[in-house]
Design a protein around this nucleic acid. Structure first.
Length: 722
DNA sequence: ATAGGGTTAG
C-alpha cells in the first residue's frame, strides 16, 4: 500500500498518536513526499505532541507552505514560549496568505509573552490591511489589553470597537471586556470604583450573553478591588453555586483578614459540596480555598480533618497547612507535617520552608531551625522574602538577636514585614534604643511604617522605658502617616505610661479615646498597677477585666497576687473562690529547654521528667551558694498563706527554675542556657537567675510570654523593667 | 488552523 492510500485511509484517525507514528515511519522508509493535506495533519500532530523540531523539519519541506501549516506551527511556537520564532514565521508569510485566523494566532502569541503593546499594535495593523476581526480576535486582544490598561480610555477605545463589530453578544468577548475594566481598576492612575461601575454596567446590561465566567469575573473583580460587600451581594444573589466564584470570595476574605467570614463560607461550601452534593467540590483549587478558610480562622482541628479528607493534595495544600499550624502556635505539628511532606517525596517550596522555620520559632527549637537554615541555603531559598522574614523571627525567638540581624542584613530584598520583624526582635530583647534607631533608618530609606510597625515601636519604647520617645511616635503615627490609632496602639501607649508610673496621664489618654476602653486597655492599666503597687486603680481594672473576659485565668492570678503582696489572704481566697465558681482553670506553668535536639519539658512542681530528682538536688546546692552572695527567696510570689519554709519550697518548684538547672547540668560547659516559658517569668525566678548566672558563670536566656531576659554576671538585660 | 473569560499561599 502506498503512502497516499494509507494517508487517505488514516487521515481521519491521524490524531491518534500510534497512527501518526505509523504514517511517519512509512514516510521515512519509503522516502515518499506526502501530499499537502497529509503533511499539514502531520505537522499539526507533531506540534501538539511537542516535537517542534520535527514539525519544523516537515514544514521546511513544503515549497510553498500554506496558511494552515503556518498557523499550526506559529501557535506551537507561541505555546512553548518562543515568541521570536513565532513572529519570524508570521512576518515571513506573504500578505496574500495571511488571514484573520493567522492574525489571531499572532495576537495571542504576543499576549502570552506578556507583550500587550505588540498585540494591540498588530490588531491596528490587521484592520489597516483590511482584515476583519472576529470574536476570537476580540477575546485575544482584550486579554492583551488586560495586561497594560492603565487608564479608562484604553478600555473605552476597545469597548467602542467591540460595539462597532457587534461582538458583545459573544459571552467570551463580554467577559474579556469586563476583565479589562477589572484589571484597569487596580491601576493607581484611575478611580477604581468608576472602572468597576463600567464593568458592572456591562454585566447588568447583557443578561442574555452572561454565563458562569461572567458572574465569576465581576465577583472576583470586586474582590480584587477591595469591594467585598458588592462581591458578596452578587454571590448571595446567585441561584446556583459556582465553585470558582466562591473560591474568589473566600480568598478575598482571607487576604483582607476577614477570617470569620472566610471560615463561614468555607464551611458552607464544604457542606454544600460534600454532604448535600449541591456544589460538587472536586477540584483541588476549591479544596485549597476551603482549607485556607479553616486554617486562617484558626480552626486547626477541623482543618486537619479537611486535610485528611481531601482526595488529592498539592504543594499549596501542604504549605497552607504547615504555615497555618505554625501561626496557630502548633510548632511541633507544623514540623511533623513538614517532615511527612518530605517523606512523601514532595519538594517543599520556599513558603513551606518558611512555615517550618516559623514552627521552630514557636518551639524555640534552635537546633531544628539551624538545620533548616542550612538546607534553605543549599536549595537557594535564602533569597526568598518569606523565608528571610521567618528566619529573622526564628532567630529572635530562639534568643539570637545577632543571627536575626545577620539574616536581615544579608537578605537581597526586604519589605516592611522584614523591618517590623527586626525592630520587634530588638524590642523583645530589651534593645529599645537600637529598635528606635532601626526604625529611624527605615524611615530614611523611604519605607512607610504601617500599623504593625507602630505596635512594635510602641512596645519597644515600653520595654525600654522610653516615655518621651513613645509619646512622640504615637503622635506622628496619625499626624505624619495618617494611621488612625486602634485600641491596641492605645493599649501600648497606656502600658508605657503606667510602667513609668504616669497614671494620671494614662487616665487622660483613656478619656481622649473615641471609644469605650475594652480589655486591652484595662490589661495595660493592670500591668502598670501591679508593678507600682497601685492597689486602688489595679483592683478597679481587674474587676472590669473579670467582667469583660471572665475566662482569662491571668486576671484572677494577678489580682490574687496583688492581694497576696499585701498579705490580704481573705481577698486572695475570695478571688480564688470566684475563679473556681466560674470554672476557670489556671494554665499551668511550663518551661522547656533544648538539649541535643531534644526538647525537655518541665511543669510546675514537676514529677514527670525522669531526671527531676537530680534537678531538685542540684538546685538545692545552687541555692546554698546563691545565699552566700546575698540571694533571699522572695516569698511574695507564692499565693497560698503557708509557713515560710513551705513557701520557699513552693518557689523552688517553678518550672523555669527546673528547666534552667537542667540546662546547666546537661549543656556543654560555657554554653548559653536558653529556656522558654509559656507564662510570664516569676519575680523570684528572675532574681534567682541573676544569682545563678554569677555562680555558674554562664549566660542564661529566658523567653517568657512577653519578652526575653538575658541574665549575665548577676544582671538582667531587661533592667527589671518588664 | 486560531482563544476565550473566572479561582490557590506568608
Amino acid at each position: 500500500m502506498d503512502v497516499r492510500a494509507m494517508g487517505n485511509r488514516y487521515l481521519a484517525q491521524l490524531s491518534h498518536p500510534s497512527v501518526a507514528r505509523a504514517v511517519h515511519a512509512h514516510i521515512i522508509t519509503s522516502g515518499f513526499h506526502p501530499f499537502p493535506l497529509l503533511l499539514n495533519r502531520l505537522i499539526d500532530h507533531y506540534c501538539k505532541s511537542s516535537n517542534l523540531p520535527y514539525a519544523r523539519h516537515l514544514f521546511d519541506k513544503i515549497p510553498k507552505p500554506d496558511i494552515v501549516a503556518t498557523t499550526s506551527l506559529l501557535s506551537a511556537y507561541s505555546a512553548s514560549g518562543n515568541i521570536q520564532l513565532a513572529h519570524r514565521l508570521f512576518t515571513a508569510a506573504p500578505f496574500t496568505i495571511r488571514d484573520t485566523v493567522s492574525y489571531n494566532a499572532m495576537i495571542t502569541a504576543f499576549s502570552h509573552s506578556h507583550d500587550g503593546h505588540a498585540a494591540l499594535k498588530l490588531f491596528t495593523q490587521m484592520k489597516r490591511h483590511g482584515f476583519v476581526p472576529d470574536p476570537f480576535t476580540f477575546s485575544s486582544v482584550l486579554g492583551a489589553l488586560s495586561l497594560i490598561a492603565e487608564e479608562e480610555r484604553h478600555c473605552q477605545q476597545l469597548h467602542c470597537e467591540v460595539l462597532k463589530w457587534g461582538a458583545l453578544a459573544v459571552p467570551s468577548v463580554l467577559n474579556a471586556l469586563m476583565s479589562s475594566y477589572v484589571c484597569c481598576a487596580s491601576s493607581p492612575l484611575v478611580d477604581s470604583s468608576l472602572l468597576m461601575a463600567a464593568a458592572r454596567k456591562l454585566f447588568d446590561e447583557a443578561p442574555a450573553s452572561r454565563d458562569e465566567p461572567s458572574w465569576t469575573t465581576i465577583i472576583a473583580g470586586y474582590v480584587r478591588n477591595g469591594d467585598l460587600a458588592a462581591a458578596r451581594e452578587l454571590l448571595d444573589g446567585m441561584t446556583d453555586h459556582i465553585a470558582v466564584a466562591w473560591n474568589a470570595m473566600i480568598s478575598g476574605y482571607v487576604h483582607r483578614g476577614f477570617y470569620e467570614a472566610a471560615f463561614d463560607l468555607s464551611r458552607r461550601m464544604h457542606s454544600l459540596g460534600i454532604q448535600q452534593d449541591e456544589m460538587p467540590v472536586k477540584d483541588l483549587v476549591s479544596w485549597n480555598a476551603i482549607l485556607s478558610g479553616y486554617v486562617n480562622a484558626r480552626r486547626i482541628e477541623e482543618a486537619n480533618s479537611i486535610f485528611r479528607e481531601m482526595p488529592e493534595r498539592s504543594l499549596l495544600t501542604w504549605t497552607v497547612m504547615i504555615s497555618g499550624l505554625a501561626q496557630s502556635g502548633f510548632g511541633e505539628e507544623g514540623l511533623k507535617l513538614f517532615n511527612q511532606m518530605k517523606l512523601e517525596r514532595l519538594e517543599p517550596c520556599d513558603y513551606a520552608y518558611a512555615g517550618a522555620v516559623t514552627s521552630c520559632a514557636v518551639l524555640g527549637s534552635l537546633d531544628n531551625g539551624q538545620q533548616l537554615h542550612s538546607q534553605i541555603i543549599q536549595l537557594g531559598h535564602d533569597s526568598s522574602l518569606s523565608v528571610g522574614n521567618a528566619l529573622i523571627t526564628m532567630y529572635a525567638r530562639c534568643g539570637l538577636v545577632e543571627a536575626a540581624d545577620t539574616v536581615f542584613l544579608t537578605m537581597p530584598y526586604v519589605d516592611s514585614v522584614s523591618w517590623n520583624a527586626m525592630i520587634a526582635a530588638l524590642a523583645q530583647h530589651g534593645h529599645g534604643i537600637q529598635a528606635i534607631q532601626l526604625y529611624e533608618k527605615m524611615l530614611k530609606e523611604d519605607i512607610l511604617p504601617d500599623r504593625i510597625t507602630f505596635l512594635t515601636i510602641l512596645s519597644a519604647c515600653s520595654h525600654a522605658g522610653l516615655v518621651k520617645e513613645g509619646r512622640h511616635y504615637f503622635e506622628t503615627m496619625k499626624s505624619r502617616y495618617g494611621i488612625t490609632p486602634e485600641e491596641d496602639h492605645y493599649a501600648r501607649l497606656i502600658d508605657l505610661l503606667c510602667r513609668a508610673g504616669l497614671f494620671l496621664e494614662a487616665k487622660n489618654v483613656t478619656e481622649s479615646m473615641s471609644f469605650e476602653p475594652g480589655a486591652p486597655i484595662w490589661e495595660a492599666l493592670l500591668a502598670g498597677c501591679r508593678i507600682h503597687g497601685n492597689m486602688e486603680l489595679g483592683t478597679q481594672a481587674a474587676e472590669r477585666l473579670l467582667k469583660l473576659i471572665p475566662q482569662q485565668d491571668g486576671t484572677y492570678i494577678t489580682l490574687s497576687n496583688m492581694y497576696a503582696t499585701l498579705g490580704q489572704w481573705d481577698e486572695v481566697a475570695r478571688v480564688r473562690q470566684l475563679m473556681r465558681e466560674r470554672g476557670v482553670k489556671k494554665e499551668p506553668g511550663c518551661s522547656w529547654v533544648e538539649v541535643e535536639n531534644m526538647v525537655h519539658v518541665f511543669l510546675v512542681d514537676d514529677a514527670v521528667h525522669p531526671e527531676v530528682h537530680a534537678v531538685y538536688k542540684y538546685l538545692e546546692q545552687l541555692v546554698q551558694q546563691m545565699r552566700k552572695l546575698g540571694y533571699v527567696p522572695d516569698t511574695k510570689y507564692v499565693l497560698h498563706d503557708m509557713e515560710s519554709e513551705q513557701k520557699e519550697y513552693a518557689l523552688s518548684t517553678h518550672s523555669e527554675k527546673l528547666a534552667v538547672v537542667y540546662g546547666i547540668m546537661k549543656l556543654p560547659l560555657g554554653a548559653t542556657i536558653r529556656v522558654f516559658k509559656n507564662l510570664r517569668i516569676c519575680g523570684d525566678c528572675h532574681n534567682a537567675f541573676k544569682f545563678i548566672s554569677k555562680v555558674v558563670e554562664r549566660e542564661i536566656v529566658v523567653r517568657d510570654r512577653k519578652r526575653f531576659h538575658h541574665f549575665r554576671n548577676g544582671e538582667c538585660s531587661c533592667g527589671n523593667y518588664w
